[in-house]
Design a binder for these strands. Structure first.
Lengths: 131, 131
DNA sequence: TTCCTTGCAAATCGTTTGCATAATG
DNA sequence: CATTATGCAAACGATTTGCAAGGAA
């Protein structure tokens, strides 16, 4: 059975205040201001637990580090190749993707992961000035 | 300047014979039959080099291990949640995705990564019999 | 001979885990 | 009291890196 823990609550609360999809490390150093003795292990354990419960989402955007998102509604992400920032991306519905993929595939497709990459607004503008 | 190396050639040749997107470790143990003294480090260095040159593709499908593909034509992949196999997926053109995403995004979208997950044909059929 | 590449081992990095103790139900 | 959660540190697995020696141009 699941027992309440103040650390877990703090982790989830912190995540809900952020929209930049922080990593475990960032969660750790922030929650530490409230729980100076919390350990990285506890942060990882709770992030994994919350993700398994479906209360948060674990994002794997190919940079070798897991990012976490308190917004579990299906939506898309953009990863900046320059600064590494991960942001939400408004996108018209592309659920047609799944059907397109299911086409003549003999197995069972349960979902897909998509993320976009390039230069974020900030880095794109900076590149323009430099060139 | 880039110098020829028999190890690098063997690594690329091996990759071209495989369509199951092997990991560095699998490349290592196979190339080892031809070069018993090759080291994992050399395999990693060459895979990274070849990927940077665009001669092979590095696939990050969220399982924590990099997979490599000698087929650099843009195409999609399917990852089996059960057995972890990574296979190619025939898919109608979905390049509309990029434009859809570019919509009102203020930065520069250079590409996207998409992979599908679920049960591969083999695991799907096995699940059916069991239930 | 120059400088890239290798093999080896040690180092890094993100993440997980074992264990004794603290907190929850 | 029964159990889950924590803090700490050690363990892990994948990948990278420093270095001296080997091989290509």
């Amino acid at each position: 059975m699941l027992k309440y823990s103040r650390q877990r609550e703090a982790i989830k609360n912190f995540l809900m205040t952020r929209h930049d999809h922080p990593t475990a490390d960032v969660v750790y150093s922030n929650v530490r201001t409230e729980f100076p003795n919390i350990s990285l292990g506890t942060v990882y354990r709770n992030l994994t637990l919350l993700a398994d419960l479906g209360e948060i989402a674990r994002l794997r955007v190919g940079d070798g580090v897991d990012h976490f998102d308190a917004d579990t509604h299906p939506h898309y992400h953009f990863v900046c190749s320059e600064c590494g920032s991960v942001t939400d991306l408004k996108l018209k519905d592309i659920s047609g993707l799944l059907e397109a993929a299911a086409g003549d595939f003999d197995g069972l497709i349960q979902g897909h992961v998509t993320y976009f990459y390039g230069l974020c607004p900030h880095c794109a503008h900076r590149a323009q000035k430099t060139s």
